[in-house]
Amino acid sequence: MALRKHQEPQTQSSIPDDWFVPIKKNESDAEAVVRPSLSYWQDAWRRLLKNKLAMMGLFFLSFLTFMAIFGPIISPHTVDYQDLVNQNLSPSSEHWFGTDELGRDVFTRTWYGARISLFVGIAAALIDFLIGVIYGGIAGYKGGRTDHYMMRVIEVLYGLPYLLVVILISVVMGPSLATIIFALTITGWIGMARIVRGQVLQIKNYEFVLASKTFGTKTGRIIRKNLLPNTMGPIIVQMTLSVPSAIFAEAFLSFLGLGIQAPLASWGSMASDALPVILSGDWWRLFFPAFFISLTMFSFNVLGDGLQDALDPKLRR
């Protein structure tokens, strides 16, 4: 019979007789997986790529990082050269972002400030991460009494008003880059410690379950497939979100006069120095640092949101 497969016979009687023979089964057919199976990370990455807002954030952050590195280099001016003839100039081809009241080039200072602001943010996030992993790891791993007391300490610290403590520390230690980072990390690590502890407890549970079922050989696979996604997701998101909050806190400290001190500059200190002159119309002094703080915040936030969605195992389909 010359009937092709997709031309179905129209009536039951027109079905060829030789179709009524036992089927030759292709064993591998039954097992074939139709859907492409992606690893967790590939899947997460794919979903992140699809998230336009997050990609925008990633793009801006790359741009800001690039400019933080090369901005001061491509600028013909230096950070703290005071050109007293050219004070308070508005943006021009000579001074792209204008100059401040001491005649310093705002463009150069902005990208120089970017270095410091980003450094503060990233350093604080990294230190939070380190302390959090160690503290949370120990609490979760030891369990029992140790865990109990360690969590009590966290509870008390958690009740402390974060920014007040930061202010207090900065007042006492005197403003400096190190002080700021130290002050920011004093209570900043708590969130991370909690996450890590929770995850470690979970790992212990898995190990227990596995051991009791003597599935030993599959431990590696389970850790890779289930545990790392569950653990790394929240940690990455937490880190992404703690960078901007550190940058923000630094700006706040600068406003209180406890931030980065001249001749150094951060976005925060530039913005707060610019506040008194804004009403006289020198908008560029505030605009550039404030704009880039906001852009950084925005980028980290949308990237963090995107990561949260992309890394959430629950949302995986």
């Binding site: 497969k5 997709h6 179905e8 016979p9 079905i15 030789d18 179709w19 009524f20 023979v21 036992p22 089927i23 089964k25 057919d29 039954a30 139709v34 859907r35």
Partner: peptide, 24 residues
């Protein structure tokens, strides 16, 4: 169910499956 078979969906598991089952 992303790409359900054209024939009887039980074909792969059916002990009585025939050629026709896979086709229609």
């Amino acid at each position: 169910l992303f790409s359900p078979p054209a024939g009887c969906p039980f074909t792969a598991r059916c002990p009585y499956a025939m050629e026709v089952c896979d086709k229609m």
